[in-house]
Design a protein around this nucleic acid. Structure first.
Length: 475
DNA sequence: ATGTTC
């Protein structure tokens, strides 16, 4: 991205100057000059299009890890007011609805656990179904699947997958309201019946990591983190169901936009007013997919505990937090001194509630919401905490963010060589797809250290801990 | 992300 076309507001905040008579809302881009320079121009084009959508409140915003996505950029945040014709867009949520990360803290010390990492990697790989179309041990009938869509992680815990205590640390206590299984197509449901408790493919992973550095002792203590401790991060979403909902509703929302005469600067921005029948229908289906993803990560948590118990009989894994980064959520935000209910699209962006937020679990209320910036394969991840300085509708970066397309990555790297190199660095990868491994090469992603540092400097969140991967199960 | 072409 050429920075000449931007106006710098602060060291880590930029805007796109508007021509007079331009009716679109403001565009705000968070990031350092080097991060923005390395971004595709498409990010700017896409977020400028988002700023022109009806009912947008404040600014259309990109996070430091933004990159080119379908319609909306990944790393994009846009809030809409239903009362002012605000819209909902499937492209603003993302195809993998409620994709996110569950982080578990263990009572294990990495040094003690290390001699068994090879065995752990093999057992996790055997237990956690991963890969495109991969099905798990669970096969649900239509009625049971509807219960998943209504109950989320609460349903999973009732079935014996995990503990009630987990739910305190899952957004919305593991279940969002407003899910309407009837708004989800039979095809979407059929695709999901055998895919509960599976990881998926692409950038999804299950990683065993060691806490290598603590930045903030007080917050780390509240999060239950200490140096040398083993933690587990599970990155996955709503699998075939979410993807099929995305496909179904792109078509429906495009028709609605056309019927209602909404001008779309890009056909990928298909959307409908929140208050329209189509908008309401998508919301019901999207909320069902959120519950599906929350249930999925809950089941994977349970499977992970089972494998750890085989190898480390003394192991105890507690949920630190479960965070989604592809959602649209109705939340209260203060805008120009007034509190308003807004529909906040976060696509490739996580929520990051400030200290004191009433929707935070008591344990974290004083320090702010745990935020997870997941790194690329082999590079490390960060745990951060929400701050009161955040002015991006309590939103924050979600990962390293791609710097190179999958096709470009395939030309640069060979999967097997890459995995051998990582193994020499003490990182054990297990995957069924060498092609997938090449596409996920760390070099194809932005530098996660830079993303986390800039996220903190921009005031979006503050760093608490750095996690170094040891074992990684890839989809 | 994805029964990898939305």
């Amino acid at each position: 991205m050429n920075l000449q076309q931007l106006q710098q507001l602060h060291t880590y905040l930029w805007t796109l100057p508007q021509a007079s008579g331009d009716k679109r809302a403001q565009v705000l881009l968070y990031g350092s000059a080097p991060l923005l320079e390395s971004m595709d121009d498409k990010v700017l084009e896409q977020i400028a299009h988002v700023a022109a959508l009806p009912g947008l409140v404040g600014a259309a915003i990109t996070m430091p890890d933004a990159h080119w996505g379908y319609g909306f950029p990944i790393g994009g945040v846009a809030a809409f007011d239903a009362e002012q014709g605000g819209i909902i867009s499937a492209g603003g949520v993302g195809f993998d609805i409620s994709c996110g990360i569950r982080c578990l803290r263990s009572n294990l010390d990495a040094r003690d656990a290390a001699p068994y990492f090879n065995q752990l990697a093999d057992r996790l790989f055997a237990t956690i179904p991963a890969g495109v179309g991969e099905e798990g041990q669970i096969n649900l009938n239509p009625k049971q699947l509807d219960q998943v869509l209504l109950g989320g992680a609460q349903w999973a815990v009732k079935q014996g997958y995990g503990d009630l205590a987990d739910l305190d640390y899952v957004e919305e206590n593991g279940c969002v309201s407003g899910a309407v299984p009837g708004n989800v197509s039979e095809l979407a449901k059929k695709r999901q019946r055998g895919e509960m408790g599976t990881l998926g493919s692409g950038n999804h992973y299950l990683e065993v990591q060691v806490v290598e550095r603590i930045y903030d002792n007080v917050t780390a203590q509240a999060f239950g983190l200490r140096e040398g401790q083993l933690v587990i991060s599970i990155h996955c979403g709503s699998r075939g169901l979410g993807h099929q909902i995305g496909t179904d509703y792109l078509i429906m929302l495009a028709k609605a936009a056309s019927r209602l005469g909404i001008h779309l600067p890009d056909r990928e921005l298909a959307c409908a007013p929140i208050k329209s029948p189509e908008g309401q229908q998508y919301l019901g289906a999207m909320n069902a997919a959120i519950n599906c993803a929350l249930a999925n990560r809950q089941i994977l948590t349970h499977l992970t505990r089972g494998t750890f118990a085989e190898i480390y009989p003394q192991a105890s894994l507690e949920t630190l937090f479960d965070i989604s980064h592809n959602t649209c959520k109705e939340e209260q935000h203060e805008v120009d001194g007034k509190t308003r209910w807004l529909h906040v699209h976060r696509k490739g962006a996580t929520r990051a509630f400030a200290p004191g937020h009433p929707r935070l679990p008591t344990r974290y209320r004083d320090v702010g919401q745990p935020v997870i910036i997941g790194g690329s394969m082999g590079t490390g991840s960060y745990i951060l905490a929400g701050t009161s300085t955040n002015q991006a509708f309590a939103s924050c970066s979600h990962g390293a963010g791609r710097a190179m397309s999958r096709n470009q990555a395939l030309k640069h790297w060979d999967g097997r060589t890459l995995i051998n190199d990582l193994e020499r660095q003490g990182i054990l990868i297990r995957t069924r797809s060498m092609r997938g491994a090449a596409e996920e090469a760390p070099g194809a992603y932005k530098d996660v250290d830079q993303v986390a540092e800039v996220t903190e400097q921009a005031g979006l969140a503050r760093r608490v801990a750095f996690l170094r991967p040891k074992v990684c199960i890839k989809g």
